[in-house]
Amino acid sequence: MNRIAVALPLVLALGACGSDADEPPTDLDVAVSDGEAEALARQIEAGDFLDLQLGAKIVGPQGEEVESALSNPEGNFADMRSFVACPAGMKTCDPAKAPEGTVYTYVHVVYPGEDNEDDSGSGEGNDSSDIERATVFRMTRPATGFTGAAGYSKDEAMAAIGPKADVVVTCDKGALVWTVSAGDGGDQWEQAEPLTFWWQSTVPPAGPAEAYAITANYTQATGSGPYPGQAAGATNACEAPPAKG
């Protein structure tokens, strides 16, 4: 499996905050196999969502944002709101008119359980159960056109999980995976706590596709969101060969 690992030093930046500051952080960036060691040797720093400079959003049939539920036969396990934005300075985001080389930022706001909005996502009463622990958000298809830039909202992670929050982004067979951990016990990423995840691609979306999943309450649920269209010759940083030392 060819992977890029992104170890996110949230604990180092926030370790002095909160009552749990003296507790040891979770440690998802320690290799326990040769494959993981190879991945960690290629780690990059994830960007904070608040640091992004975004322009206009793509307007599709559902408007600027796509709302969906991540579900399985047992029920709905999360709401998700997604959008795709052009770079800062672009007042309209129309892929048909965008200049060559435009980088598109895919943004997914994931709410375990529900978002408490009756008229969006799963809606009132449609969540399967109270989500006590969500641990993974991921793509289920290769990240077409992925530039190598990805991240999440560190402020939201701090608000949801606290100073022990640890988020690691890896690539699994060309798809991006965000692993969210707070260690054993204590605060977890749980019911109705939004976390924003983002990644960038050189390929614009072709429309919503069944391409995303959450692991919550130890089960996986899938759903649709904006996904890049087909693009001959598009690269994917998840599938790039390892850098030679």
Rank of each mutant, 00 (worst) to 15 (best):
S122L: 06
R138P: 03
A160F: 04
D118P: 01
A211R: 00
K57S: 13
F197P: 00
N2C: 08
V136D: 15
V169G: 13
G148F: 00
Q220D: 12
P9Q: 01
E23H: 09
G89M: 09
E74A: 10
W198G: 00
R141A: 11
G162Y: 00
P194H: 08
A150Y: 03
K173T: 08
A159I: 02
E36I: 02
K173P: 02
G148T: 01
V6M: 10
M139C: 07
A46V: 01
V84D: 04
D115H: 12
P95N: 10
V169H: 08
A221V: 11
N236Y: 00
D172K: 13
A213P: 03
P61V: 12
A21R: 13
G35V: 05
R3C: 07
E36T: 02
V180M: 04
E210L: 15
D172F: 09
L54P: 01
V32N: 10
T202V: 01
T219C: 12
L70I: 05
Y104L: 04
Q53K: 15
G223D: 04
I44D: 10
P242M: 07
T26C: 03
A232Y: 05
R133A: 15
Y111A: 07
K173Y: 09
R133K: 15
F197W: 01
A150T: 06
K97C: 09
V203N: 09
S201P: 02
A46H: 06
P112H: 06
C171V: 00
D51N: 04
L12F: 12
D29C: 14
T135K: 14
M139W: 07
R3F: 10
A16P: 03
S33V: 09
Q188D: 04
E38K: 07
Q220N: 09
Y111K: 06
G145F: 04
A39K: 12
E64N: 04
P87F: 13
D22K: 15
G47C: 06
G55Q: 01
L50G: 15
G121H: 02
L14I: 09
E190M: 06
A221W: 13
G174W: 04
P194R: 08
M90W: 03
A37M: 04
G225M: 03
E114R: 14
